[in-house]
Amino acid sequence: MDRDAFLAGVRTAVARNRVPNASAIDPGPLVPDLPPVDLVAMFSEILERVDGHVHTGDALQALDEVVALYGAGPFLSWDTDRLPVSGAVAHLEELGCGRAEAEVSNQPDARKAHQVGYGDVHIGLTGAEAGFAETGSIVLRSGLGRPRMASLVPLIHVALLPAALIFRSPMHWLAEPETDIASDSNVVYITGPSRTADIEQQLNLGVHGPKELHVILI
């Protein structure tokens, strides 16, 4: 339908609209003034409550633990210059994991053929640009050297998060002047591993996304 005609129809309807209390939005405080807490402790507790795992200490040693737990296998990764630990990609390769190509073709058939190969991807290695203590979430942004698929198709997602980037809540992060959810094509909050309770409300992990989520705090 023609846009102008569509919008004209909406405009007519809006003029007749009788919704209660439709005044302009109250710009009151979005971020409640809360007593300070240990953000790292809160983040860790809440993430573990939603079946994620948190590692502190040496990042490369944490990668050793992950590979010891689940075995080595093909991995998708953000580029080294996008990660807060420069040796992480090389370290996974040293542990016997082979890095998969993350650049997807814009030619339809080549794209499909490439992506079908993602069926084998075992580990995904990414950074994160923020964490939320109250919800146990991490925030990932797409862009150059930051494939979305790395946090999506593997069985195990390992995210490297500088502890200094943990905010109290999503609202606190959104209130930061430099936060822009639209500056890249995709921003995602990840809160634990993929889960479903569709069958008799029985919890199952890893239905489409990763079954395991390990956050390594830097």
Binding site: V50, S185, N186, V188, G192, R195, G209
Partner: peptide
């Protein structure tokens, strides 16, 4: 839940 597991914001292609 405090947040859904994946809160996915898509802005363009």
């Amino acid at each position: 839940q405090r947040l859904t597991v994946y809160t996915n914001v898509v802005t363009g292609p």
